[in-house]
Amino acid sequence: MKHIKVFGPGCKRCETVMQMVRDTAAELGISVEVEKVDDPRAIAMAGVMSTPGISVDGMMVHAGGLPDPEKLEGWLRQ
């Protein structure tokens, strides 16, 4: 199971990213646990300067804006 964290204050883009992760994982048949991190201190400690940020199994893979769907697939397949 992949552990995904989505870092952001709860904006519409953050919610969209969470849904993108869930939808993509379901399409690929990959089991994921998606955690929303909205604490400003935790976001800063993770090094996210622009939200939403995404980490996969503890590795930061994206920050700022919506991720490219093909890149998201690649991160989930790793």
Rank of each mutant, 00 (worst) to 15 (best):
G8L: 00
M1Y: 10
D38E: 12
V21F: 01
D38Q: 03
I43W: 02
M60S: 07
E73V: 15
V61K: 12
R77A: 11
A42K: 15
M45N: 09
G53K: 04
L28M: 14
P40W: 04
M18C: 08
T51H: 03
G58M: 13
K5P: 03
D23Y: 06
D57H: 07
W75H: 09
A25W: 00
R41W: 04
H3Q: 15
E33V: 13
E27P: 04
Q19F: 01
S50G: 13
D39C: 13
K36Y: 10
I30L: 06
T51V: 14
A42Q: 15
C14R: 04
E35Q: 11
L28D: 10
A26Y: 07
E33Q: 14
K12E: 01
K2F: 01
K2V: 03
V37P: 08
I4L: 00
R13F: 07
L76Q: 03
T24S: 04
D68L: 08
E15S: 08
K36A: 14
V21Y: 00
F7E: 05
D38P: 01
I43P: 10
A42V: 12
T51P: 05
G29M: 00
E70I: 06
T24H: 00
K36V: 06
P52E: 06
A26E: 13
A44G: 10
K12D: 01
L76T: 03
G10F: 12
A25S: 04
E70Q: 13
V17C: 09
G64E: 02
L66C: 11
D23H: 02
W75A: 01
A25G: 00
M60H: 11
L72D: 05
K2A: 04
P52Q: 08
V34K: 02
D39T: 11
V17N: 05
A44N: 11
I43T: 04
H3D: 15
A63L: 11
G65A: 09
V6R: 11
K2R: 14
D38L: 02
T16G: 00
V56S: 03
W75L: 03
D39L: 08
D68W: 12
E15Y: 06
T51N: 04
R22S: 10
H62P: 10
